[in-house]
Design a protein around this nucleic acid. Structure first.
Lengths: 101, 101
DNA sequence: GACATATTTCAAATATTCTTGAACTATTGA
DNA sequence: TCAATAGTTCAAGAATATTTGAAATATGTC
């Protein structure tokens, strides 16, 4: 992961509604939830939610697929994993015992 | 960690200069670097850097201490650890094998 | 005390992000 | 084909965040 991508992912998570959505999807796992159900649970307008889901998807943190009229969203674990790895990369000049990560 | 705190930490990292500073400090480890050295390395104005360092400190991601006229900054690993734990909390309804984290 | 150095604070200007509501697209079922 | 359902897109306005430069603070040195 490069810095630009990491900022897209971090800014995707650094917003109240999107963080709630992300955590909801992390909790749900691979089954995912349809957009409308997510909007109802966090109490957001459909268009606002669509904006937020697009940000999370662009960041590689969630993926989407259609089932009949509904669009399901689920967490994309690989994206999360890459982000966490990027943040802890090269910790303490390669001597992680120094900082305990 | 609660949601509010997580958003402060994530938005601290979701900015080009601050992410550069954070990664620089992760790399340096507990020794840290003085504010002026950080500003010089990323090419930011002192007042802008001060603003960013304050954001990172408020987020609990770095800590600061004075040595003569200089103020040193170093990564605060516990803050980073708490954030990463928060993001992966309750993954897949407690069945992490479902999503491979 | 006077000056130099390192950094922070503040207010204004600028830039970016978020919300809203209306219009639009895609899919389904009668 | 028509109407209903589920979501998305768009443009405008509102809210937030960032940069800038000047002034202020804190510490150390002569």
């Amino acid at each position: 992961m490069d810095e630009r991508t990491a900022i897209i992912a971090l800014s995707a998570l650094a917003q109240e509604h999107r963080l709630q959505v992300f955590r909801m999807l992390v909790h749900e796992g691979p089954t995912g939830l349809p957009a409308g159900e997510i909007a109802a649970r966090i109490g957001a307008a459909p268009s606002a939610l669509s904006f937020h889901l697009a940000h999370l998807e662009r960041a590689g943190l969630v993926r989407a697929w259609r089932v009949k009229q509904q669009i399901y969203y689920a967490v994309q674990v690989e994206g999360m994993r890459l982000l966490l790895a990027f943040l802890t990369e090269d910790c303490c000049q390669g001597q992680p015992e120094l900082c305990g990560v």
